[in-house]
Design a protein around this nucleic acid. Structure first.
Lengths: 118, 118
DNA sequence: CAAACTGTTTGGGTAGTTATATAACAGTTG
DNA sequence: CAACTGTTATATAACTACCCAAACAGTTTG
C-alpha cells in the first residue's frame, strides 16, 4: 500500500497522506503519469474521511506534484521525477547541519524562512 | 533594531521574532556570547506581549541557538556561528530545487519529513 | 542587603486547525 | 447511460495555536 497513516500519531492525518505520496515519488515507487488511488478508495482503506484525503491531494497539487481533474483522478507531474535527486540533496544537507551541531528543527526553520521571503 | 515584526502579517508574531534572530545570526550581526535584548524590552519596543517574545526565545533555545537563565537573559551559543554556512547551503538547495521546477513549499515538506523521521 | 533587572510559572480567552459527516454537483470514462 | 472521478456546500465537535495577564523566583548591580 502506497499510502499509510497512523491514527495515534500527533501528525495530522492529511499530512501523513501527503508525506506518503512524496516518499513514494522520492523512492521511485510512483512515477510521472501514474494515477494516485482515488480519494474515496484511500479513505475507505485507511478509515479516514474523504475530505481528509482530498486535503492531502490538494496540498500536493498546490506544490505542483500532481494535477487533479474530476473523473480522471490525481496524476503525478514531471516535477515528481526530480524528487529523488532533491531528496538526496536534503539528506546531505541534514547530515552537514548535524555535523555543525544544528538540529533538523533549526534547518527546517531556515528553509521555511527563506521560502517565505519569496 | 535586530528584531522586527509586522503586525499585519499572517506569520505568527513569535515566529517573526525568532526569524529575526536567526537572520541576525546568519548575517553575523550577532555572534556567540552576545546577549539578546531582554524580552521585556523587545515586547515594549514592538508592542507585543512579553510571552510572545519569550515564546520565540524558547523556540531558539529548543533549537540550540541560545541558552536562557533568569536574571542573565538569552545568550547566543556556538551553534549560531554555523548558521552563516548552513544558510548559504540552504539558499543553494532552494535554487537547485527551483531549477527542477520544485516549489519551496515542496522543499520545506521534504525537510520536515526527513526531520520527523529522526 | 535591596533594588532592579532577568526568565519562569500558572492560568485563561479567542481564533484557527483538524477531522468528521452528509449531500448534492459536475466532468470523464467505459 | 452507468459508474467512476474530484468539487463544492454545510454543519459540527474536538483540539491546538496564539496571545495576553499577573504573580513568582533566580541574578546582577549599586
Amino acid at each position: 500500500m502506497l499510502i499509510r497513516v497512523d491514527h495515534s500519531s500527533d501528525e495530522p492525518l492529511f499530512a501523513q497522506v501527503a508525506a506518503s505520496v512524496r516518499a513514494g515519488a522520492a523512492a521511485g515507487r510512483i512515477r510521472p503519469g501514474d494515477r494516485l488511488p482515488s480519494a474515496r478508495d484511500v479513505a475507505a482503506a485507511l478509515d479516514v474521511n474523504l475530505h481528509t484525503v482530498l486535503r492531502a491531494y490538494q496540498d500536493l497539487r498546490d506544490e505542483g506534484l500532481v494535477t487533479m481533474r474530476r473523473g480522471r483522478g490525481a496524476v503525478l507531474t514531471d516535477a515528481a521525477s526530480h524528487l529523488q535527486q532533491i531528496h538526496r540533496d536534503v539528506l546531505d544537507l541534514v547530515d552537514r547541519a548535524r555535523v555543525l551541531g544544528l538540529s533538523t528543527d533549526t534547518l527546517a526553520s531556515i528553509v521555511k524562512e527563506i521560502s517565505d521571503d519569496r
